[in-house]
Design a protein around this nucleic acid. Structure first.
Length: 876
RNA sequence: GGGAGUAUAGCUCAGUUGGUUUAGAGCAUCUGCCUUACAAGCAGAGGGUCAUAGGUUCGAAUCCUAUUACUCCCACCA
């Protein structure tokens, strides 16, 4: 017998085992002759700090990886971080600014060296935090999307796609972030509701005194107007065919054009066209061959086309122009107007649609096979509803703008030549060679090559992640990629289904001719009590590390899992973690109980032998249930099964049955069986709660320091013996019924009772388990009788009637009331069954089994009513 | 505007191709217990017209239609 603290202390235990696992390389994986089970982490941003979303996501991954490991797979979880070009660059720029350094004053190389310094200092924080959670990643494999090997992979892919004719350079309307000074993809733009104004401007019709009134939210863009557009069937304006109008203040004359695009109901039915600053106007401009006047600088201020407004910020300019228009009596009116404005996901700046020269990847042909593998379930989505979302996107996929005007990222391997041509190559040397082949007469040298200034979109590196972490791009047939790819499960958030999931599938099919993963599990969004998404900017997210300190990593893991069915949002509440902590403690105390027993070579009670037999069966059943739940990725339910298995079946039933009386010894046979059972239970628990299970595993049989549960195998599954389980179910019901009577009648614990049972088909079951019933109900005896006795209360379990003797007289009125209520209930029930059975259609059409079932229900109900009536008579 | 999804106990959710008592679990609540593993606990109890209205069927939480409310995705209104 050893002394153990009465409260489980996670902090000490967690640090101890995590270090031990690391020292013993428990997480490391090398290709061998076992089957591989691979997960690549969705690489968190290097700028990232662990938030609740990460906690959920990585808990799930760890559960899956640990379980796979315990099922005999060579489990490999590859960790790493993403260079997150915009987010990181913004962070570094801000940091430099705080130090009085302006990015503009730095060379590219200088800036990058600052960025790398920043990365080395802060980039590992999030991975260190994951260790606190217990993440069993193979840390020796940690990758970074900007490290040399992955950088090269990205460049290889760019060059390859370019050579396949899938990458092109073109002028397009892109989402311009005037703060970060870069183009953004559509996915990086978020629309926000905003209270703004709708301005009604007066455009004078040339050679006439008439005005046409045009509504706009952006009066400053009149500087770039090149037409006014109305609907061809709009009779209000039919007389304006061929006419020109004069832009207010600007004075420039522009044509009136006609197009069905215009919504006659909106505003005045007249639309001003600014092809350089609105995507729809841009398209109309192309269609009607309009000029395009760019009026903005990259930072959102007005350029020289802005005339007298040049240099003003766009929003300042808007105010000024509105004032000037009013002064000139060219403003018809201003209305309040609520609309949605696109903002940069990273900087929050209002997006300026802008024409610019960018690099694009053609998506249509690439998307087709990627759609197919999801629709055919070669890649399974959990939950499957996301297949719809995926299909919609893939069928309407647009070319991907892959260039960003940043420095932090993979620089586009295009080299511009003095003759305004460019070549694409993996290095400057190769580019030179190509240039010389293309233009043999020019005698170019390396100095003539100017590498493109842009870097690639971050997702252009993350889409290779499942391959590049195994160096599968540069060395497509290396041992690792062939062993670990395709990976098994991807755990991610539905919001990046297009950003990332779709593109990984495309890349996998293109470069490995194989899907990158077999299952995608979409987690819900972690929300606060008010239903808001947890985010740093709202400040409504608890600090995960503090939570771990408070409830233990196991407690927090359990908290995350309990309330997060796949695809459903998780309204987070600390009480979930509290439940997890309580569970750790429950296990801890079960351990204390077992370790407090004195073991002697005495005879094993029959009840203990029976309990062991039953419990092993229950364990087998639980293992089967888990198998089923995991196959459907129902992790929340699987944990709940384990929770009830441990708390109810193990602690409340099994341990209570075999528990010796105070200070009495336990027989060796039962004790040793219990140690085995307890170890097996810990193995089942381990994937969910790795720390407490490891600690308990080591104490229970005093295992050697380096004999880890995390390297053990789950108990084998046998065929389920349901007879034993259903017998015990009945016994549980019986015991609960007896306890309920005691509770109701306030029968003190120490008083021994006699229970008589009669009229029982289940009598032999009671007989078999009588020792257990006596023990758990604190009964003196349990005997069969034909006649009821005085001073007793009659109750029923299923169709079995039993009598609990009382020390005092029965409160007759109270009992009569209860029996009457029971009779009423069963009469109602009987009637509903009879209604069914007297329906000829039911009897003739319903399957025989169902009808037989109803007949059984009826006879059971009748028997119960009869018994209840007898009980009632006894009181009258 | 287009698409998808959800609605079951106070809360979070199960409920598999329609049929096992008149619907289950965890948490919360209530009652009684500091019963020698655990009050972070034990024992027991209460709690639901399965969103609303129709329909199909011998039979509907489950299938169909409409309505209402909410959620998400996509497009975007000048």
């Amino acid at each position: 017998m050893i002394e153990i603290e009465s409260k489980y202390n996670p902090a000490i235990v967690e640090d101890k085992w995590y270090s031990a696992w690391l020292e013993n390389k428990c997480f490391s994986s090398k290709p061998d002759n076992r089957k591989a089970f691979t997960i690549v982490i969705p690489p968190p941003n290097v700028t990232g700090v662990l938030h609740m979303g990460h906690m959920l996501n990585n808990t799930i991954q760890d559960v899956l990886v640990r379980r796979a490991r315990m099922k005999g797979f060579n489990a490999c979880w590859v960790p790493g971080t993403d260079h997150a070009s915009i987010a990181t660059e913004a962070k570094v720029v801000a940091k430099l600014k705080a130090e009085g350094i302006d990015k503009k004053d730095l060379s590219r190389e200088e800036f990058l060296s600052h960025a790398w310094q920043w990365k080395e200092k802060h980039g590992g924080i999030i991975l260190e935090q994951l260790k606190k959670l217990g993440a069993s990643c193979d840390w020796d494999r940690t990758r970074f999307t900007m490290e040399d090997a992955l950088y090269e992979s990205v460049i290889d892919v760019f060059v390859d796609l370019y050579e396949k004719g899938l990458i092109y350079r073109g002028v397009r309307m892109v989402n311009w972030d005037p703060v970060a000074l870069t183009a953004l993809s559509d996915e990086e733009v978020i629309f926000k509701e905003q209270n703004s104004k709708l301005y009604y401007l007066k455009y004078k019709i040339e050679n006439s005194d008439e005005y046409i009134i045009v509504a706009t939210t952006r009066p400053e863009t009149i500087l770039g107007d090149t037409a006014v557009c109305v609907h061809p069937e709009d009779e209000r304006y039919s007389h304006l065919k061929g006419k020109k109008v004069i832009i207010p203040i600007v004075g420039r004359s522009i044509p009136v054009i006609f197009d069905e695009y215009v919504d006659r109901e909106f505003g005045t039915g007249a639309l001003k066209i600014t092809p350089a600053h609105d995507i729809n106007d841009y398209n109309l401009g192309i269609k009607h061959k309009l000029d395009s006047i760019d009026i903005f600088n990259d930072n959102g201020s007005l350029n020289e086309n802005g005339k007298q407004y040049a240099g003003l910020d766009r929003f300042e300019c808007r105010k000024q122009i509105a004032k000037d228009l009013q002064a000139a009596d060219l403003m018809h009116k201003i209305e309040d107007y609520n609309n949605k404005i696109g903002c940069s996901e990273r900087t929050g700046a209002v997006i300026e649609p802008k024409l610019s020269l960018q690099w694009f990847l053609k998506m249509q042909d690439l998307a087709k096979p990627a759609l197919e593998v999801v629709m055919s379930d070669e890649i399974k989505f959990h939950p499957s509803k996301f297949k719809n979302t995926y299909r919609y996107w893939m069928e309407n996929v647009k070319d991907w703008c892959i260039s960003r005007q940043l420095w932090w990222g993979q620089r586009i391997p295009a080299y511009h030549l003095p003759n305004r041509e460019f070549v694409v190559a993996k290095s400057a040397e190769e580019a030179l060679k190509k240039a010389q082949e293309l233009f043999p007469t020019e005698n170019y040298t390396l100095n003539d090559l100017k590498q493109d200034e842009d870097v690639l979109d971050t997702w252009f590196s993350s889409w290779l992640w499942p391959m590049s972490v195994f160096d599968g791009i540069r060395n497509p047939n290396n041992e690792e990629i062939n062993y670990y790819y395709p990976t098994n499960d991807l755990i991610t958030a539905p919001e990046i289904i297009f950003f990332w999931v779709a593109r990984m599938i495309i890349a996998g099919l293109e470069y490995k001719k194989e899907v990158p993963f077999k299952n995608v599990y979409f987690t819900g969004i972690v929300r606060d009590k008010l239903g808001r998404k947890m985010s740093k900017s709202l400040g409504n997210s608890p600090d995960p590390i503090e939570l771990i300190e408070k409830y233990g990593a196991d407690g927090v893991r359990m908290g995350m899992l309990l309330a997060s069915p796949a695809g459903n949002d998780l309204p987070f509440d600390e009480s979930y973690c509290e439940q997890g902590r309580n569970f750790s403690n429950k296990i801890w105390n079960a351990l204390r109980l077992i370790k407090s027993w004195k073991v002697e070579d005495i005879e094993q009670p029959a009840s203990s032998a029976l309990a062991i037999e039953w419990f092993k069966e229950k364990m087998n059943k639980t293992l089967c249930d888990l198998e089923d739940d995991f196959s459907k990725y129902r992790l929340s339910e699987s944990l709940m099964s384990v929770y009830k298995f441990v708390w109810d079946d193990l602690c409340s039933w099994y341990l209570e049955i075999i528990k010796p009386a105070y200070q009495a010894p336990i027989d060796r046979k039962t004790y040793e069986a219990t140690l085995d059972i307890f170890e097996d239970v810990m193995k089942i628990l381990h994937p969910f709660m790795p720390f407490v299970s490891e600690e308990v595993y080591h104490i229970i049989k005093e295992r050697k320091e380096n004999d880890f549960i995390m390297q053990a195998q789950l108990p084998a599954i046998k065929e389920v013996n349901s007879t034993l389980l259903s017998e015990f179910d009945f016994i549980e019901e019986f015991i609960t019924a007896i306890r309920s009577v005691r509770n109701e009648k306030n029968i003190a614990q120490k008083v021994a009772l006699q229970v008589y049972f009669t009229r029982s088909e289940e009598g032999n079951i009671i007989e078999k388990y009588s020792d257990i019933v006596c023990k758990l109900c604190n009964l003196e005896t349990l005997t069969s009788c034909e006649e009821k006795i005085e001073k007793a209360i009659a109750k029923m379990v299923r169709t079995l009637e039993f009598f609990v003797p009382l020390t005092d007289n029965v409160n007759k009125e109270e009992e009569i009331k209860k029996i009457k209520a029971d009779i009423e209930y069963y009469e109602g029930f009987k009637n509903s069954v009879m209604k069914k059975l007297s329906n000829e259609n039911f009897v003739s059409k319903a399957p025989e089994q169902v009808v037989a079932m109803e007949r059984k229900k009826l006879s059971d109900a009748e028997q119960k009513i009869e018994t209840l009536n007898e009980q009632l008579k006894a009181f009258l």
